[in-house]
Simulated scan of single mutants.
Amino acid sequence: MPDPGPGEVLVDVQACGVCHTDLHYRDGAVTDDFPFLLGHEAAGTVAAVGEGVTGLRAGDYVVLAWRAPCGACRSCRRGRPWYCFDSRNARRPMTLLDGTPLTNALGIGAFAEKTLVAAGQAVRIDPAARPEAAGLIGCGVMAGYGAAVHTGGVGRGDSVAVIGCGGVGAAAIAGACLNGAVKVIAIDIDDRKLDQAERFGATHTVNSRGTDPVEAVRELTNGFGVDVAIDAVGRPETFLQAFSMRDHAGTLVQVGVPSPGAQVELPLLDVFSRGGAIKPSWYGDCLPSRDFPFLVDQYLNGLLDLNAFVSGTVSLDDVEDAFAKMYRGDVLRSVVVL
């Protein structure tokens, strides 16, 4: 574990969620730069800061972000830091005892007692927030909430459909409800997840294992379709379903991460004639320094139930079991507690 260099901070990890992206890394679906240090939905306290770091000091309670805008690239200069093309990470890798460098998942690597990150990745939050819940803001909750609120622009009176009600989809449902949507339709093939979706505010549920979700959504919207359809799965079939269940000029938000070989085929005339927008959502188009403290405030004020995302806590030795539960759909999030 290197000491923090200029612009870096060392963080004592208190809790870290087990995310689907960690599973993608483990299975080699993101990069082949093995060996990996997984874990990126983390909360903890700053242990030490490097030269030139301002705004953070030892003892600060933080949530880690896997994007830290540089402030200088062409996207940041255009006032769109959530699309930063040169996001900051720690410059030196953590290593195995024999010196083998580790690839930190999403530039964090928090399945460990300590992790080294760029200072901009450590976002200070209210210490009253429970670390098991707060850490989830670092990825899944932010991605889903932001997909609805920032990318999809859900507002008062809107109708919304969310395909896939895991952690990201549940956060999208919560975000849509908090931002004033009046009809929020949760779609999944697992009744357990649909039950959970109602806890986050879904007004209607559709089990798409035996029901055509497009037809079901149209029946629930007087034949029109929804204003915003969110694909939180990332498979070709769910993308096409989301495309077809929109109202005219509606918005499709893709936040589920597709596999590298996934492809869709759409008649170009359908794309043109339906109008609206097809918008991928990167990290919920968030600005961590702005959005993490806001979501924590929503949580502490009882408006966003982050505790409901925590299905259970595990030790580092239990991560493989947590992956197995994720495969089976038994959990929204297992959280490693250190």
Rank of each mutant, 00 (worst) to 15 (best):
V53T: 11
G284R: 05
G225V: 09
C139D: 14
G146I: 01
A58D: 12
G261T: 12
P81S: 11
Q196Y: 09
L116I: 08
S334Q: 14
G39V: 09
G234F: 05
L269E: 03
A15F: 00
A262I: 00
P4K: 10
G223T: 11
R235W: 01
T251K: 13
W82T: 07
V18W: 09
V11A: 09
G59W: 07
E237H: 12
I185V: 14
R199S: 08
K114E: 13
L64A: 08
A322Y: 06
T100S: 10
T203A: 04
S289Q: 13
F272V: 13
Q298W: 08
M326S: 15
P131A: 07
G157W: 05
P293W: 04
D231H: 02
G140Q: 04
D190Q: 13
D297I: 00
V233S: 02
G169Q: 05
V310R: 07
P6A: 13
F239M: 12
M1I: 10
R77M: 10
D33R: 15
G146N: 04
Y25V: 11
L102N: 02
G250K: 12
A15H: 01
P2R: 11
P213L: 13
V13N: 02
G107E: 10
S75W: 12
S208Q: 12
W82D: 15
D270H: 09
G153A: 11
V310Q: 08
M94N: 10
P35T: 12
E8L: 08
F34Y: 15
D305K: 10
D86L: 07
N222K: 07
F272T: 09
N301P: 00
T221K: 09
C84H: 08
G167I: 09
T238L: 04
F323G: 06
D33Q: 14
S87L: 02
C165Y: 03
L332P: 01
S208M: 15
G275Q: 05
V182S: 13
P69H: 09
G144C: 08
V62A: 02
P236V: 07
V9K: 07
G55N: 11
V162E: 10
N89D: 12
P236N: 06
D191I: 03
S311A: 09
L316C: 02
H150N: 15
D33W: 08
V271D: 00
